[in-house]
């Protein structure tokens, strides 16, 4: 089982990298000129960048369209980020002080994460006539929910030996495979993560770009035929 999971982890990581590079390759290879509209690429000013940064960090465009979805998705992304940071203690040695510092926040975020996912699901499924939930998003939400719940169970109800868990994960990172901890819950949690890794959506890196572009475009709108 240890060998199988170690091999699967390397495969999942390679798959993730292939997906990542093929997307970036596709972007790089595309026509760099705008399809037609020169005004799409407006000028970048410090105030534009500042506003775009706030749009990206606080999901202000989501807030403008749906307050409940904003609350759910912003909480989800923040808690997911904190949980990821908290998990860095398994792959880093020595563990940086910052990672140690955010451990309590990461633990709380671990409990908030499935609740925010549940809220996202409720918002999506109760949209009335305009209800929309893609198969991919349903799969992602389900996968994240299961991953987070198994994580919560491990840290609260069915405690896993963290020293062995770190030895297993750290061994994988340093190419010195170690034995899998004797915890089925850990194995399930780890397998779910391996499924999640190559399935991560690329809006995580693409949407900040489009958010900045939207700011530029909105700023340029009143210059299209209002120039002197």
């Amino acid at each position: 089982m240890s060998f199988f999971l170690t091999l699967s982890a390397y495969c999942a990581f390679i798959l993730f990298l292939i997906r990542l590079f093929s997307h970036i390759w596709s972007w790089i290879n595309a026509d760099k000129e705008p399809a037609s509209d020169p005004l799409v690429n407006g000028k970048i000013s410090p105030s534009l960048l500042w506003n775009a940064l706030l749009d990206i960090l606080f999901f202000r465009r989501v807030y403008a369209t749906n307050k409940l979805l904003w609350a759910a998705s912003w909480t989800f992304h923040l808690s997911f980020f904190l949980v990821l940071l908290r998990h860095l203690r398994y792959v880093l040695y020595p563990v940086p002080g910052f990672i140690v510092f955010i451990q309590p926040a990461g633990k709380i975020a671990g409990y908030i994460l499935p609740l925010s996912l549940l809220l996202i699901l409720i918002v999506r499924l109760t949209g009335g006539k305009d209800r929309y939930l893609s198969v991919y998003n349903f799969f992602l939400v389900g996968l994240l929910m299961l991953t987070s719940l198994t994580g919560i169970f491990m840290s609260s109800l069915f405690r896993t030996d963290l020293v062995n868990a770190k030895a297993f994960v750290f061994g994988m990172v340093t190419a010195a495979p170690a034995t899998l901890p004797e915890s089925r819950l850990f194995a399930v949690h780890f397998i779910l993560f391996l499924v999640l890794l190559p399935s991560l959506p690329f809006h995580l890196i693409a949407s900040p770009v489009t958010t900045i572009e939207a700011r530029k475009r909105e700023q340029a709108l009143y210059k299209v035929i209002h120039e002197k």
């Binding site: 972007w27 026509d31 399809a35 809006h203 890196i205 693409a206 489009t210």
Partner: peptide, 29 residues
């Protein structure tokens, strides 16, 4: 498919989170 898309438009396709918020504003919907 995709040869006519600009770099930004390719990024736009990846940026869509499929949140479905746009359906509320679509007149065809």
């Amino acid at each position: 498919f995709g040869k006519e898309l600009s770099q930004l438009q390719r990024i736009e396709l990846d940026a869509c989170t499929q949140c479905g918020e746009c359906l509320k504003h679509c007149p065809v919907q």
